[in-house]
């Protein structure tokens, strides 16, 4: 089994989409064929009660690339992200219009089983939020809930997931320790491992490093670049430099509207919208 850390040593992560998936490197016992995980947001309006949070959002989230969503606080970035795996269902007064396609399925269609959807579209939160249980149980939580009981199989999944999240070497001797006793950066990688264990196709990241110190943040960023070989990643961030470092495509959200959307270099070097220009130069927001 080739570990992520080995791969990382001899290369800067490749950015093309036709590389073999990291998920297929393993033993083959627990691997889904990489599905094309393109997501499309079509004419999305989101209301919290009478307050419209998103206005006619259209986005094309491309398979196995990092798409960044940037914008000032309160622009609806997180709300948009939460629409992509229907975590917005938790907000009692939330109402959604428009379509979000995963592959060719509308995730808001009435016959969609949200639990299955969220297994395919997972999320990493701003504040690292490992469960108050051991490192092992944290990673095994998803697979267990999906019916895997065999201890050996769970051990394999836990090891492989922790390796993919570049955390195995640091925690392999303390899998029984509480997940909450790890450092902040380790906790966030534990949350990523926990997510990888359910084999998602899309990973939503809601400002995943904003609560972390710069070194931990750097490790997570590196990990993102690694993961986007196998997973489609949507990254919400207020840190524009982070977006410019990792994202292939960037969307700029302001007041609930996408004011600019395109290749990251273009957004940062020759924005078409004056508001984008002001924002990335730090004149607004």
């Amino acid at each position: 089994m080739q570990s992520v850390s080995e791969q990382r040593e001899n290369q800067s992560p490749p950015r093309t989409t036709d590389k073999p998936a990291v998920g297929s490197v393993g033993s083959g016992r627990w691997v889904l064929p990489p599905a094309p995980a393109r997501m499309q947001v079509i004419g999305l309006n989101l209301y919290y009660g009478s307050n419209q949070v998103l206005r006619n959002v259209n986005l094309d989230i491309r398979d196995r690339e990092i798409t960044a969503i940037i914008g000032p606080s309160g622009s609806g970035k997180s709300a948009l992200l939460w629409c992509l795996n229907r975590l917005n269902d938790l907000v009692p007064a939330a109402r959604v219009e428009g379509k979000v396609l995963l592959g060719s399925e509308d995730i808001y269609a009435p016959d969609v089983e949200v639990a299955l959807l969220r297994q395919r579209v997972g999320m990493v939160f701003q504040q690292p939020n490992p469960f108050t249980m051991s490192v092992f149980d944290n990673v095994a939580y998803g697979p267990r809930q999906h019916g895997i009981k065999d201890r050996r199989r769970l051990e394999e999944i836990v090891e492989e997931s922790l390796r993919k999240a570049a955390l195995w070497d640091e925690v392999k001797d303390m899998l029984d320790l509480a997940g909450t006793s790890l450092s902040g950066g380790q906790q966030q990688r534990l949350c990523i491992a926990r997510l990888l264990a359910v084999e998602p196709e899309v990973i939503l990241m809601d400002e995943p490093v904003s609560a972390l110190d710069p070194i931990s943040a750097y490790k997570i960023e590196e990990l993102m670049l690694q993961l986007c070989n196998s997973y489609t990643i949507v990254l919400v961030t207020r840190n524009m430099f982070q977006a410019s470092r990792v994202a292939t495509t960037t969307a700029v959200l302001m007041g609930g509207e996408v004011i600019e959307y395109g290749p990251t270099e273009q957004i940062f070097e020759s924005p078409r919208d004056e508001r984008t220009d002001n924002y990335i130069r730090g004149r607004v927001g």
Binding site: N85, L87, L90, A115, L116, L117, R118, Q119, G122, M123, F125, Q127, N129, F131, Y141, G142, Q145, H146, C191, R194, L195, V198
Partner: peptide
């Protein structure tokens, strides 16, 4: 209990 815990578990596809 922090809402984040519920969100994390649901986001992993738990009921």
């Amino acid at each position: 209990v922090p809402q984040d815990f519920r969100a994390a578990s649901l986001a992993l596809g738990a009921t």
